[in-house]
Design a protein around this nucleic acid. Structure first.
Length: 229
DNA sequence: GGCCAGGTCAAAG
DNA sequence: CTTTGACATGGC
């Protein structure tokens, strides 16, 4: 007997609890993509200050970033962590945009979703989650983003091993209507849930989302590790 | 001071 | 093919 959570139901539950989240604010599609790379394993507030620095330099476009000396760019990204790595990732991505799309990320929309995804995955520093984030949040393509929270939440609810990225992605896409606004909101809500915010707020106690949140918070993983010893 | 943050890559088993 | 270690700073 395998229990499968109803993803539409979960979405409605979370939406009712948190309402509409204004996620991933940015002034351009390119800025979203930059954020997608910089936020890898990094708190968003640290990404924001790096983005501000790039904007102050009037460099929030591919040529602008490529015009910054390598060591200087790395230094500007210091606050995001992994800054040497990320500066090369960002430069590689900009070179990719310049050579394939004349520096205009909007032109990527002319490709099919799968082609664009494959093309992005060939860029160093862009893995599945970052590729899907760029497609969904920057390009407005209805492709679902899976992150570590999502995999953990589903595996906890269903008491199974963590599913593979593509398997879970395809499942979300087949169980939900292909609506970019739902995809964007749902992923954002899963991140909120995964952070365990609900669990830490007394006023949430008793609400249905709280029950899900109890098993979804980041700290649970550590508790499990400790319990195993 | 320890843990966590909107992952990815290359090397090793 | 899966697992593991490196990458690194900032806030709570």
């Amino acid at each position: 007997m395998i229990f499968m959570v109803d993803l539409r139901e979960l979405y409605l539950l979370l939406k009712e609890h948190w309402g509409h989240l204004s996620w991933w604010p940015a002034e351009s599609a390119f800025e979203v993509a930059v954020g997608a790379i910089l936020t890898q394993r990094t708190a968003w507030r640290n990404v924001e200050s790096a983005i501000m620095r790039l904007k102050e330099k009037q460099a929030m476009h591919p040529d602008g970033i490529l015009g910054i000396p390598e060591f200087e760019l790395a230094d500007m990204l210091r606050c995001c962590g992994f800054y040497r790595q990320k500066s090369t990732y960002l430069r590689d991505f900009c070179r990719f945009l310049v050579s394939e799309f004349e520096g205009d990320i909007e032109k990527m929309n002319a490709m099919g979703v799968e082609d664009a995804r494959q093309a992005l995955l060939l860029v160093r520093g862009i893995g599945q989650e970052t590729a899907d984030s760029i497609l969904l949040y920057a390009c407005g393509v209805s492709t679902f983003v899976i992150d570590e929270y999502t995999r953990r939440i589903v595996s906890r609810i269903e008491r199974t091993e963590k599913p593979g990225y593509l398997v879970l992605k395809r499942r979300f896409e087949s169980e939900l209507p292909p609506d970019i606004n739902i995809y964007r909101q749902f992923h954002a809500l899963l991140v909120e849930l995964g952070k365990g915010y609900c669990k830490s707020k007394p006023e949430c106690r008793g609400c249905p989302a709280f029950t899900v949140c109890l098993t979804a918070g980041a700290s649970v993983e550590r508790e499990q590790r400790v319990a195993q010893k």
